[in-house]
Design a protein around this nucleic acid. Sequence first.
DNA 1: TAGATTGTTAATCGATTAACAATC
DNA 2: TAGATTGTTAATCGATTAACAATC
Lengths: 203, 203
Amino acid sequence: MTRDIPEISLQRLPIYLNYLKSLPEGDKYISSGAIAAALGMGEVLVRKDLAYTSSSGRPKVGYVRTELIAAIEDYLGCNKKKNAILVGVGGLGSALLSYGGFAKYGIDIVEAFDSDPEKIGTSIGGKMISVDSEVASAVQKYGAVLAILAVPASAAQQVCDGLVGSGIKGILNFAPVQLKSPESVVVRNIDVAASLAILASLL
Amino acid sequence: MTRDIPEISLQRLPIYLNYLKSLPEGDKYISSGAIAAALGMGEVLVRKDLAYTSSSGRPKVGYVRTELIAAIEDYLGCNKKKNAILVGVGGLGSALLSYGGFAKYGIDIVEAFDSDPEKIGTSIGGKMISVDSEVASAVQKYGAVLAILAVPASAAQQVCDGLVGSGIKGILNFAPVQLKSPESVVVRNIDVAASLAILASLL
DNA sequence: TAGATTGTTAATCGATTAACAATC
DNA sequence: TAGATTGTTAATCGATTAACAATC
């Protein structure tokens, strides 16, 4: 399901979604101008982004808030359940296992993996922690398509290779390493330290 | 120190830096073509990005790896020590307190804050956890310019207001909320759940 | 109807890539 | 010298913004 939306527009959809959900229930209509003003963006940009979700507004009144929320959620696939696994139950991995924020996008972390014998067999946030070597069978068993990679940089490529081999289709990588993977597997990176450093260099 | 580098180029500098540091000590020279190939980017783009750091290479041989690392580190301000505080010692906040990855960018998290009386007075990763209301005095005391915001969405704006009032100049916000702040304060957001949802919608 | 707002087409802006001269 | 690589200028590409017709 590759759509022709620019990824940068796609990245803004959750921002609109969060904002729209934060509005009072009583607000039936919302205009692109109001959204733009609240989020500090241009109103044409907002309308263009929203148009990708095939939501449509009415001249003079704007968009029906609940319809817009539903359209964005639908476009993002929030209503399509996806299973994810997490590899690397260190500090960050543990935090993500306990974090409830994935559910609103239809994502469920079904199992976690680590190489530390101390952790294996325990569970965090109701998620079982199993040994690394069982990743592939778990991916099959749960039909998991997503993986969160939260291992040390030194292990990241090797774990990535295993994930690719297991049939995982998307990897969110927290290790500060550029992973090599086939084009058919989508990898996106979050480097918290680098993000803070970039922010600092803008001051 | 606002430079005329596009932010998107700035965001790539840590990627180059990580890659260059991962190369064997024995590699004296590295070409833009080799960097580009390793990271899957265009080689002209690499040269342009590197040119912003005022590093320069030699035709035929490439860049001196160690010089390039030094130039990027210098440009990113890794050698200029910056103090950061962290607000919200939940799962994610705790993980970030224990995370050692900020040091390589010259960033030190000096103190953490929370509203939970149970946590106040304890410490994580060697960082003291104090009560929220002491943020402003700590910012003064340490000369902190950066803040990591890891509180629930419902508290984020209020905490942000306090940070702005305390004189903080940059905020890395993990709450899925668009913060309102004066233009003089730089805010960047990381929304892990949204990032995974976007990734999923690309599959 | 008049006015506000949408949706789209054209213009602008900025980032990436291509071409190529400089140079070691 | 010949060839590889840098650094820069011009061309292309894509995203944002401006203009404006459609419409409720």
